[in-house]
């Protein structure tokens, strides 16, 4: 980006006139961006107020950090933080491992036709909405579903398991849902990275007598390491965002102690109970943690000499 440093950066009238089209549309985009992305930040003031819609931002009483104090005294909120982190990290780890494993194994397939077919099928779930995915998952795990049927057939259980009634199953189900939906899609980038590895490395290794596992360990994995790191960096900032749709759709009263996430908490307080101040405060907490995570991840990456995001 710093290539054009040598060019004159002095703003001349002629240049402005020449760039009229760019400048005009930039102004439009800045206004648009300000409205939809920057003005909502001003709404954060509600977290420090006892915000009443009738009184507005100016008329509502300021209460300092009271709303945050309320949040951290609320056991449900603490539970919700735990759930969000636990599921976010569990999902991150399982989807990463599965995507990398799948990409490496797919790359080992000899039959080009078979590879193509498997890969095409593997993308399918990514294109289905969470509504559809949770729906068919619900069917598969229901009393008459395939999972209970198979477990019965192999004699592993004597009675149907009601998967959605026991809190212990909830996190694994959510992780599985994410793996099922995104493994093939996430593998795309790793496959592209594997293809970019110099084939002569494998030939040289083969001459040295390296077997399949040695090649995967010493060539393929180091080869895709930069890709893994950069995706990890991007996704760490998103850990807290990974907790909404599935949990909202699959959660129910019996498992809500483990299923509720920060976003669901915000939705309940803010939209259903009209307590905008609590909802906003919880949202600020989430944003702050997300940004902190990105900065920490970026710092660690810099220290360890990996690529960094910015």
């Amino acid at each position: 980006m710093a290539k054009e440093k040598g060019k004159d950066k002095k703003i001349t009238w002629a240049e402005v006139k020449r760039q009229k089209f760019l400048l005009l549309w930039s102004a439009v985009f800045v206004v648009y961006g300000a409205i939809f992305y920057y003005i909502p930040l001003g709404g954060w003031i509600m977290a420090f107020q006892n915000y009443k819609p009738a009184k507005g931002f100016l008329g509502s009483d300021f209460v300092g950090m009271d709303k945050f104090k309320f949040l951290f005294a609320d056991n449900t909120f603490l539970q919700v933080i735990r759930n969000t982190f636990a599921m976010g990290i569990l999902n991150l780890v399982t989807t990463f491992v599965m995507a990398i494993l799948f990409a490496i194994l797919l790359n080992e397939m000899k039959s080009m036709g078979g590879k193509k077919v498997v890969q095409t099928i593997s993308y399918l779930p990514h294109f289905l909405s969470w509504i559809i995915v949770t729906g068919i998952l619900h069917d598969a795990l229901s009393g008459t579903g395939i999972v209970n049927e198979l477990l019965m057939k192999f004699g592993l259980i004597k009675q149907n398991i009601n998967f959605f009634a026991k809190p212990g199953y909830f996190w694994p189900i959510v992780a599985f849902a994410n793996v099922w939906k995104e493994t093939g899609w996430n593998a795309i980038i790793y496959l592209a990275a594997i293809t970019a590895i110099d084939p002569s490395l494998y030939e040289a290794a083969a001459i040295d007598g390296a077997g399949r596992w040695a090649k995967i360990r010493h060539i393929t994995l180091p080869g895709i390491r930069p890709t893994i790191m950069i995706l990890l960096l991007i996704n760490i900032g998103n850990v807290l965002n990974a907790g909404f749709e599935v949990q909202y759709l699959l959660g129910n009263g019996l498992v809500q102690s483990v299923s509720q996430t920060i976003d669901i908490y915000i939705l309940k307080w803010g939209i259903s109970q009209f307590d905008y101040s609590i909802g906003t405060a919880a949202g600020i907490f989430k944003s702050a943690v997300s940004i902190a995570l990105v900065i920490i991840a970026n710092y660690v990456a810099k220290k360890t000499g990996e690529d960094k995001l910015f």
């Binding site: 409205i35 939809f36 992305y37 909502p40 930040l41 709404g43 954060w44 976003d263 600020i284 940004i291």
Partner: peptide, 19 residues
């Protein structure tokens, strides 16, 4: 930069809803 920032910072569900 103006747009890249929007990838990391946003007002959150409630302020956006009110907007």
């Amino acid at each position: 930069l103006f747009w890249v920032i929007t990838m990391y910072v946003n007002g959150g569900m409630i302020p956006i809803f009110l907007l």
